[in-house]
Design a protein around this nucleic acid. Structure first.
Lengths: 183, 183
DNA sequence: CCCACATGAGACACTGATGTCTCATGTGGG
DNA sequence: CCCACATGAGACATCAGTGTCTCATGTGGG
């Protein structure tokens, strides 16, 4: 009887990831419910997007926790983080562009927290001498999100195999395109 | 008298880069013309976006030409390419997300040409032993665009200094975050 | 068994953006 | 100087999406 709100959010996320301009009607149909019921759960499109944003933040923070950013080398922590991000990458990509849509508007404080935690990871790697210091933690954080989004799109469009998602992102982010002479 | 179509396109690109949901009215105002005149130039929003896409493709190909991808090492060519891309990065970022907006729809053939040229550059680097071979040219191409878009947004939001745009992208793309033990 | 309650279907008004049209204006070229 | 033509301003219809409402239905719990 009661609508499965969790399932509803997941299905909306899945649809909007593929087609970010989907209407409330399409979102409802995708979830197998009527527009009226959808509207009873989320008073409007913006409310739905906010809920998805909260979901995304929640998943991000769960990924950050699961990745245990303080353990091992920073590089290993980054590898774990990208792996944990993989499931949420589609949703992340949607929210990433959604955030570009509004100029000025203050963003959810959750992102700032998440940014700070990831930036701290890169800073740790720099302080330990593992990462280069000429790329700012803020940029590396931005690049991490950007590459995850690009990777998610590349996978949905078939330009990259889904199984390679993690490898391609981590290797590029950490090692770059140049061949390592040593190692 | 006659509207400067070139200037009109530029101003539309600049506005839509900042606010991709801008209305035709806003686009017209930003260009300092009336909505009626804008409509005489571009029969509809989709026509305008197509024109911007053509402009973006044109600038991309100009950048590819200017970067002389066949000369020097592939790494140097990539550096030149990113530098040439810098001016168009905002427009590129807009078009990059605009392309994600439509599922299925066939995309402008120009992008395929551009993708092919950039992928060929990465392939050249791999064949010369300069680039690692475990990252596919398709992915490196995708990542190049993704990083340019991320960089453009990071700059407009003040998270990265404009003067660092080129350095941050090239260094991350080529060298990655890890410190090089040698060199 | 029966009632309460959530749902589905659909009607309805409202809004914002769009596309089209008209008309007055003013400027540039002949 | 004068006319042609492009422009600006605005009215207008249209359309898609949204938000609200009503009502019939059917299912689950008491």
């Amino acid at each position: 009887m009661a609508v499965d709100r969790e399932h509803l959010l997941r299905s909306a996320a899945a649809l909007l990831t593929r087609k970010s301009t989907a209407t409330m009607d399409e979102v409802a149909k995708a979830a197998g419910i009527s527009r009226a019921t959808l509207h009873r759960q989320f008073a409007g499109r913006d409310v739905l997007v906010r809920a998805l944003e909260d979901l995304g933040i929640q998943e991000c923070e769960a990924a950050l926790d699961a990745a245990r950013l303080d353990e091992d080398t920073a590089g290993e922590a980054v590898r774990r983080l990208v792996r944990e991000f993989e499931d949420a990458a589609g949703l992340l990509a949607f929210l990433y562009t959604e955030n570009q849509l509004f100029e000025g508007e203050e963003q959810n404080a959750g992102w700032a927290r998440i940014d700070a935690r990831i930036a701290a990871l890169f800073r740790r790697g720099q302080e330990s001498g593992e990462f280069r210091i000429d790329l700012t933690p803020a940029w590396l954080t931005e690049a991490l999100f950007g590459l995850c989004a690009s990777g998610a799109w590349a996978v949905t469009e078939g330009r990259v195999a889904a199984k390679d998602f993690h490898y391609m992102i981590v290797e590029l982010l950490l090692g770059g395109a140049l061949r390592r002479d040593e190692s």
